[in-house]
Amino acid sequence: MGTIEVGWERRSAARVLPAVQPRKLAKVPFVELADGRLQGVVSSGSDIERVYVSSVVAGSHAFNCSTNNNRPCGGLRGAPCKHLHALVDEAILQYGVERVARYLRIDVSDGASSGSDLLVRLNGSHEPTPAAVVFSRFLRHLAYLEVPGSTEPLPELHWFPATGAVD
């Protein structure tokens, strides 16, 4: 998260989260660092109606991939499948490699920049986790797009200035 300035603790508008970078969403519509996991939804390359739910647990590095109906991913044979690769690649685009590594507790002090770099440093194995939890997080995420806009002032947003032109 870069260097923290003097007096940061005493700033009301202190920046806590770095600005998220926009990315193409078609392949991986949803990525998040939440519930102690890097988790997300990856579109199937062959079936437009199907999505995969992929996740990596922070700390233990246990990983999983299955369809949203909980059918195990065929590409997962003891090692991360292409969906997990896509998930980590897109997470790095969105959050930056440093933030993803810190959250998952992967040591990147020897230099890592790509999704593959992170995945080879995982020391966990495949452990099934229910896809439903992640999938419902995705649906909740999508629900924001249905919340109507407003013209009443939201004074609380003064605590949340738009940032990002400067790192």
């Binding site: 990315r23 969105q94 995420h141 924001y144 806009g149």
Partner: peptide, 15 residues
């Protein structure tokens, strides 16, 4: 005066 317009979004809609 100030006039405000707002919308809900998700974090990948930015810039």
């Amino acid at each position: 005066v100030r006039t405000s317009v707002s919308a809900a979004k998700v974090e990948t809609i930015t810039g």
